[in-house]
Write a protein that binds this DNA or RNA. Structure first.
Lengths: 112, 112
DNA sequence: TTTATATTTGGCTGTTTTGCCAAAAATACT
DNA sequence: AGTATTTTTGGCAAAACAGCCAAATATAAA
């Protein structure tokens, strides 16, 4: 891979990496319903608030979410809602996997 | 997050994590053009063949690619081509980011 | 059976990621 | 100013990841 191509794929991988974590995935889906502050997200996720804050900063750096100050709270919102198509496609992959696992199971049974 | 929800997001994150790497992203795009053997992919990527082999096994475990033996070669193919919609949406995110960076740049300039 | 080719596995090292804690920063209230 | 609330930052230890090498495995050809 030449350096340009390398760079191309690194940039894209960086964005995908940003959502490649259970809590961050949860945050994205949650924000798709409307903006939330760190407090609210922390209560729902159940880890330390500093951990949630760091997850948020990762998503923000990737350009997926944005934030808005209001009083002492900071509200985060989804900046690129098209990320949801992304997640929709995920379901297809999972469905495909499950279907195949089902087939393997059936094959095992019929061989008995 | 209750254990079920946790499990739900972990499963989805695992699939995303599988493609969250430059070489693996390259592999997916390459396989979208047709099946390839480890040899061919290694030549294009330029890392050790053992490294490429491990990337392939990660993608395979995630259910994204499958393999087919032919002589001493093993050909890998895309099992869930819908993963490409995924990548298409990525472009939207990147475009959105670039647009915004452009705006920031313009704002900086006009303030001079 | 030996040899060559293609791929995977095991193991090692360095890097990155995660998540907790404590401390700092920012804002609003008294 | 002092206090409470919300969020971020810095630092640390454990875990996961990446890439190289050498060795093992599998298949085909001589």
């Amino acid at each position: 891979m030449n350096p340009e191509t390398q760079h191309y794929y690194e940039g894209r991988a960086a964005i995908i990496k940003a959502i490649a974590h259970p809590s961050r995935l949860f945050i994205v889906e949650e924000l798709s319903k409307g903006e939330r502050c760190v407090n609210e997200l922390t209560a729902e996720i159940g880890t330390d608030m500093s951990t949630v804050s760091k997850h948020l900063s990762i998503l923000k750096n990737a350009g997926i979410i944005g934030d808005r100050k209001s009083g002492t709270s900071i509200y985060y919102y989804l900046k690129t809602p098209c990320i949801l198509n992304f997640l929709g496609c995920l379901e297809e992959v999972i469905e495909c996997n499950m279907k195949q696992q089902g087939e393997i199971l059936m094959a095992c049974r019929s061989r008995k």
